[in-house]
Design a protein around this nucleic acid. Sequence first.
RNA 1: GGACGGGUAGCUCAGUCGGUAGAGCAUCGGACUUUUAAUCCGGUGGCCGCGGGUUCGAAUCCCGCCCCGUUCACCA
Length: 489
Amino acid sequence: MRRHRLEKLERIRARGEEPFKFAFSRTHLIAEARALFEEAERAAANGGAPVEIPAALAGRMTAMRSHGKSAFADLRDETDKIQVFFGCAQMGEAAYETLKDLDLGDFIGVRGAVRRTKRGEITLFADACEILTKSLRPLPEKYHGLTDVETRYRQRYLDMASNPQVITVFKKRIQVVGVLREWLNAAGFLEVETPMLHPIPGGATARPFITHHNTYDRDLYLRVAPELYLKRLIVGGFDKVFEIGRCFRNEGVDTRHNPEFTIMELYEAYQDYMGLMKETEDMLAEVIEAVIGGPTFTYQGEKISLERPWARMTLHDAIRQYADIDIEATRDRATAAALAESVGVEVTPTMGYGKIVDAVLAAKVQPHLVQPTFLYDYPIEISPLAKKKRGNDALTERFQIFIARLEMGNAFSELNDPIDQRERFLEQIRLREAGDDEAQFLDEDFIAALEVGMPPTAGLGVGIDRLAMLVTDSASIREVIFFPQLRVL
RNA sequence: GGACGGGUAGCUCAGUCGGUAGAGCAUCGGACUUUUAAUCCGGUGGCCGCGGGUUCGAAUCCCGCCCCGUUCACCA
C-alpha cells in the first residue's frame, strides 16, 4: 500500500508538482465557511436566489466517492468537515485526472464556491485542487475509526486523525484550563512559574523521579508539587498566586493516575480553609458550568448537579455516616485498625493512624460522594503541611472536594508556624526511617522562609486532568492526556 | 505484584472438533456526472504478539515470556 502511494508521489513530481507544499492561502476555516454560507442563505431566504460563497479551503481528505466524471470528497480541518464536489466539466479534464494521485489522508487545498447539492448538503464545488501534503500511510478504517486502545494511545496522531471526537475532548480540556485561568486572573491571582527541578522533593506525599545535573554534579528531583516554592512567594510578598503546571510522581498507573499530571495550585494570604472552601466552590462550579454549558451534567451515567451550596461534612462525620464507625473516638492505632477491619477495610502493619483513616475514607466514604461534597478536618498524621485545627490538635484545617467520586482538590490553612513545621518534618523523617518511602523530606530552606514569616495563608491544589475527565465524561485519565505514559516497547 | 479479558491483513472483526487463513472497509484494475459507510465486477495483501513443547499436522492444545485493558493491591 505504501508502495502505491510512493508511485503516486513520483507521478506528482513527474508532472512538475511538489507533493509537500510550503503554504496555502485559505480564505476560511471550514466552520467559518459553513457559518457564512448559512448566514447568506438565511439572508437570501426571501429573495429565493441560490446562494454561493467563494472560498479556498484546506484540510485532510478523509473520504472519496468517485463516479467516473465526478467525485465527492470529505475535507476536514481543525474546526469541522465539509463535502467537496469535483466535476470533470468544471475543473477541466487534465486537472480532474490528477485526482487519481490523491489518497485518503492527503492534505489538499481546494478553490471554488460553497453551494448546496441537490440533496441539500453544503458542498464546496471545486474549480481547482492542489495537493499540499502526500500521506504515505493509510488512515484507519473510515467507519469504525481506530478503536484499538493501545494504538490510540501510542499513536495519538492516528487516533485524532480518524476519530474527530478525540479532538473535541482535548479542546474541552484546553477550555477548562483557559476558563480556570480567566477566573483566577479575574479574582486577582497572579500566575507564576516555579522550578520543576527540585534539590529536595516536597509539597506532597509521593515518591519522586530522580535526575542528574551534570554541571553541578548533583541529583535533582522532578517536582511532586509546586507547594513549597509557591509558599516562599507568599513569604516574599505576593498575596495571591497560582501556578498551572506539570507534576511528576513515581507511582502506579491506573485510570485515575498518570506519572506526570497537571496541577493548579493557588495560595491566598490572609485567608483560611473555610473562606477558601467557598472560593473553591464558586471557582469549580463556574468553570465546569462554563465548559459544559449548564448547571448539570452526566458523568459515567450519573447525573451531577452543580447547584450550590455543595455538601460539607467533616471527615469523621462522613466516616460515621457511611462506615458506621466512630474512628475519631480513638487516637490509638490498634483500636483504629480494629475498627477499620471490622468494616472490611484492610490494614497493613506499616499503616499509621492517619493512613488507616485515609483507607476508610477511600473504601467506605469516597464511593458515596457522587454529588459535589467537601470533606474537612483531616488527621494531623496525613497532613504535614496543614495548620492544626483551632481547638483540636489531632486534626488539621484541611478539606478535600469530591465530585463524581473523584478527588478534585485538596486544600488547607497553610501551616506557617516554623517550629510546628519542623516537628512535622521530623515526624515524616521518623516515618521514612520506619520504611515509608513516600514520607516527606526536611526542607531547611523552607523552614527558614517560614521563620522569616508567612502571613496566614490558605492554599488549594486542583487536579486538572481529573477536571478534564469530568467535563468530557472520560472514564480514564488517558483519554484527556495527549500522550499518556505506556510501557516502552 | 494478583485475578480476569484481549493480541489474526493497514483498520474493524470472524475463525466450528486440531486438517489448505476468512469477511467488510482501505488498496489496485475496470464501469459510472449528485454521492455522503456510494454502488457493481475482478484482483493484491498474513511473523495468526514472541519463544518452546505435544502431534502426521497447531491461529486452535500445553508451558514460558512480551504488550494492552479492566479490577484489586498500591497511590493524593
